[in-house]
């Protein structure tokens, strides 16, 4: 289980996250919702180690992630699919996959497992990543992260800019990963998507997670969506 306990984090003198706490359980999808600029991506970056945590703790099992040098966090089993994908554009699909395998020293077996999830990538191994279609790029971003064989997976708006069939494919993938016991933290803005995949929804405002609600307590017209997203 990944626990975030009272963290404060931001950029230079600007504090974005204030005393923020929440947790993500293995085999469950925890969705993070909140308005643009509330700090959802900052929270993801704090967990993966790209944004330093000024106070508070982030722990995975017994390991204090916030105390590790950033490049050690993925080694503990935290994989990150950043907003906007951030592929290694000039590198090939195969090379992007290869990078994913490095942190936890995974081999051909893991590579095959991941490519079986996304057969379209297998057909394009030698293609340069920046020339992939948007959907294929998102598949590669997820595949690259899955190469770690992670215990926790952070996905920051993976459906941004994709057509409905592609979004469905990504949801199916997320639900499969959930079955395999991974703790999934998903930043997602679409209410219908959240209702399809979430076990819990964490609503962010004012630099904190203000409410966590189980999926069963939510409906498409819930007041919470209106309050926290302004829809």
């Amino acid at each position: 289980m990944l626990r975030v306990d009272g963290i404060t984090a931001g950029y230079g003198p600007v504090t974005i996250l204030r005393d923020l706490s929440f947790k993500a359980e293995a085999g469950q999808v925890t969705c993070i919702m909140g308005r643009n600029g509330v700090g959802k991506s900052t929270l993801m970056r704090a967990i993966i180690g790209l944004v330093p945590v000024q106070s508070g703790q982030i722990t995975l099992g017994k390991v204090a992630l916030h105390a590790l040098p950033p490049h050690q966090v993925p080694v503990q089993g935290v994989a990150y699919v950043p907003q906007g994908r951030r592929l290694f554009g000039p590198l090939t699909v195969a090379e992007n996959i290869e990078i994913g395998l490095l942190a936890r020293k995974k081999g051909p077996q893991r590579r095959d497992y991941v490519l079986d999830l996304f057969p379209r990538l297998r057909e394009r191994l030698d293609q340069v990543a920046s020339t992939l279609s948007g959907g294929e790029q998102q598949m590669l971003a997820i595949a690259r992260a899955l190469c770690l064989e992670p215990e926790v997976m952070l996905l920051d708006e993976p459906s941004e800019g994709l057509q409905p069939s592609m979004i469905t494919l990504i949801h199916e993938t997320i639900l499969r990963l959930r079955e395999s016991g991974i703790a999934i933290i998903l930043v997602e803005q679409r209410v219908d998507s959240v209702l399809r995949v979430a076990d819990h929804v964490a609503f962010m405002a004012n630099g904190r997670v203000e409410t966590v609600v189980p999926r069963s307590d939510l409906a498409p017209d819930s007041m919470l969506f209106r309050d926290y997203l302004g829809v």
């Binding site: 993966i48 180690g49 790209l50 040098p69 950033p70 490049h71 050690q72 966090v73 993925p74 080694v75 990150y80 950043p82 951030r86 290694f88 554009g89 000039p90 590198l91 090379e95 290869e98 990078i99 994913g100 490095l102 942190a103 936890r104 690259r144 770690l148």
Partner: peptide
Amino acid sequence: KAGLIMRATQVDRDTAQTFGINV
């Protein structure tokens, strides 16, 4: 592998770090 790591770091230092590369 060393070359691959250098090229990945060249493209995107932050993302390289999130894949365990000691920049």
